[in-house]
Structure formats: C-alpha cells, structure tokens
Amino acid sequence: MTTQAEVVELAGPRGGPLPAGSRAEGPRPAGRVTALWRRRRAVRLLVGRDLKVRYASSALGYVWSVLEPLLMAAMYWFVFTQVFHRSAGEEPYIVFLLAGLLPWTWFNSGVTDTAKALHSEAKLVRSTNVPREIWVLRVVASKGVEFLLSLPVLFLFVLIYRAPVSWQVLLLVPATLLMAVLLLGIGLLLAPLVVLVRDLERIVRIVLRLGFYASPVVFAVPDVPAPWAGLFALNPLSGIFELCRAGFFPGHVHWAHVGLSALVSAVVLLVGWAVFARLERTVLKEI
C-alpha cells in the first residue's frame, strides 16, 4: 500500500485542517469519519430530497409508507389467528405483529435500496465529490425517517386494543440506533459489490424473502424449538425486534439477545466499511 503512505506524506507537511477537496484523507478510518461529519449537510439535503420525492409527488405519500406493513399485518393476523391456531407471539397479536413488521419494513427496504445505492445514483456519484459513504448513509436515514413516521400507526393499535404501555417503550430509541448501525454496515458491504457483480441484487432479494421467516417477526425467539433457538438469537434482528416490543409486552426483552445483536451489528459495520473502503477505487472506475 505504497499509495496510501504517499498520500498521507503529501498531505502532512501542508498541515492545517484538511479542506473538503483534499484527496488525502481517503484511506484512513478516522479520516473517513471526519470527512463524513464535515459533509453532514449533504446527507440532510439528500434525505430531504428523498422524503420530498416520496411525499410530495404522490397524494397518498404517507399512506403508501404505512399501507404495506398494515396490509401484511392484517394478512398475518388472519392466517395465524383465524386459519391456524396461534401458538406463538403474544396478545394482542396485531400489536405484536406491527411492532415487528414496521422495523422489518425498514430493514427490508433499507437493504434493497442500499444495495443499489451506488449503482442507481451513478451519475451523481460520478459528478460530486462527497465522501462516498453518503450514498449509503442517506438511504438508511431516509428509510429510518419513514420508519419513525410509521410508528403512530403502531400506537393507534395499542390504543384500540388497550395494550398496557410501560416505560420500556423508550427502548425504541436504542432499537432505532441499532438498526441504523446494522443497515449501514450491510449497505456499505453490498453497495460496492452490486456495482461489480450485478446478479447480487437478485440474490439479495431472495435472501430477504427467506430472512423474513428467519427473523422473529410473526413469532418470538422463545417460540422457536430448542436446537434452532440459538441460531435465531444470533440474528441481529432478534434483539432489535425485542427492544421494539418491550414497551407493550413486559418481560419480552432478553438482554443476551440485545447484546448479541449489538455485537453482530458492530462487526457488520466494521466489515462493511472496510470492504467499502477497499472497493471504492474500483467502483468509481466501473460505475
């Protein structure tokens, strides 16, 4: 890696705060974070743009973002309480479902869109010099805002079913943060790979469909029989969903799951960022 050493060397003597246009900070992890922080306004602008396009261009903007999880919840509620005799999950089941489906919707759309974040914005990526992580971060953030805006629907059903609400509803905050970390990691990993290997986008879609049943959305981790329960606990979404449901189902949180989830998310972010930094050079040429 003589290249990196030279870059650092060249930047060094000139000293002072490195201006936005400098190419010197590229490869160093700390430099990447500060560069990202310096251009945080670009993230805000892009998120604003996404929400504007989403909510301003269609009359039913807000409805669209909650309609899918609502319909899914209605369908699962019918299948698992009317057709089958429900043995998993908790009562009221519709609240249980929504508290899992809303974050799942964020995860699902987040992974789908971050995977093509660089590919679909190729023109912008080719013409603007912002830290490239922004293209992934921006998707995670705008999908996250949509998730937060969909939460009132959950509380509406909590009110309708008079479900008890405890202080643990505040655990939605760490749940949101954990999910953002996990999604950012997955996105940074997938976005450059999708540019280089196009078929990956389809694979991602298939894995996501399987992932729905491999995550505790329509059931809870303790509902899974013994030999498999450990595997489900390793799924970082398990801990996140438990945090989301904590406020309505007392004793639902298993802190071991949450700890594992935090650990896995952090590792995914580190690996994702390392892969992203490594492939950046190639991606910029291929895009």
Partner: peptide
C-alpha cells in the same frame, strides 16, 4: 475533481473544486 482515485501516486488538491464535469448529473 476527486470523483476518481489514483491507482498509483498521489493527487493532492489543497482547496475546494467546482467541477463542470457531467454537470447535469446531479439534477433530479
């Protein structure tokens, strides 16, 4: 412009750059 990175050597740009390259690229 910083939209491509060198495979060898270094490009050091001390100030900001206004790139009139693919200028319509950023428009929605």
């Amino acid at each position: 412009a910083g939209v491509m990175l060198p495979d060898a050597g270094a490009v050091d740009v001390a100030t900001g750059v206004a790139p009139l390259i693919e200028i319509t690229g950023g428009f929605v």
